Amino acid sequence: MPSFYADLNFRSRTSGQTVQNHYRGPRVQNRSSATPRLRRQAGRRQLPALREAGPGSAIVNISSGAALTAPPLLAHYGAAEAALNAYGKALATELAPAGIRVTTVVPGTVLTPGADAIRQDIADARGASLAETTADVVAANPLGRPGDPCDVAEAAAHLASDRAQRVTGVTLTVDGGQLPGT
């Protein structure tokens, strides 16, 4: 890993998987899982530690491309993820005076077991196979490939690092150019 991420220590939970990243340091907290209400409660519990750590602390929320365009059968999920995006922006404004930055990463299609389960539901609704649905998603991506969890982790690591110390309140879409408005 590049040395400029050497001081980071964070966990990322997305698509039902928790990945312990290899960056080390005291400065970062991330999104919790489940509903926006649970995320908000978990975030609030972290605030004393972030305030104690002082300026330079960061929260990096991991949202979903469904927040920008929810596929059929997932409107409820898209609405919850859109709420996380709005919450991140509001929290950034609230915490900026304490020197705590808040950003959100919106991944597009990333091949994980959790995303496979969602694509399987979509495939079933379309009467298609998972392989056909995945191929359609990949073909629709301008970069011609699905995302890898490392793509999302690298974006989150950058936003959490001192290299992004003037970045707060933003939503970064990591989707290969596929999602609308990106």
Rank of each mutant, 00 (worst) to 15 (best):
Y87F: 12
A115L: 13
N9I: 01
M1Q: 12
P48W: 05
A156F: 03
A66I: 06
A128Q: 14
V138L: 08
R101W: 01
V60T: 01
P71I: 03
D162L: 10
L95S: 00
D175R: 12
A117E: 12
E52N: 08
S15P: 01
L179E: 03
V137G: 02
P71G: 07
P142D: 10
A140L: 02
F4I: 13
R145E: 05
T134E: 07
P72K: 13
S129H: 06
A115S: 10
A157W: 03
A53S: 13
L143R: 08
S32F: 11
L172G: 07
D136C: 06
D175H: 10
D7W: 00
T104N: 08
N61G: 00
N30M: 13
G16P: 00
L95C: 04
S3C: 06
D116K: 09
R24E: 13
T171S: 11
L130N: 07
S64Y: 02
P113D: 05
A42M: 07
P107K: 04
V19H: 14
Q20D: 13
L91V: 04
R145M: 00
A6K: 11
H76L: 14
S57F: 00
V137Y: 07
D116Q: 14
A155E: 02
V106E: 10
V138S: 11
E154K: 10
E81I: 06
I118V: 15
A90W: 01
D116E: 15
I100Q: 04
N85Q: 14
C150E: 14
A80L: 02
A123V: 10
D121A: 11
P113V: 09
G127E: 11
A67H: 08
A160M: 05
L111Q: 09
G99C: 00
L179P: 10
T182R: 14
L130H: 07
L47A: 02
V152T: 07
G108L: 03
G54W: 02
Q178Y: 12
P48R: 05
P113C: 04
L91T: 05
S161F: 05
V170C: 05
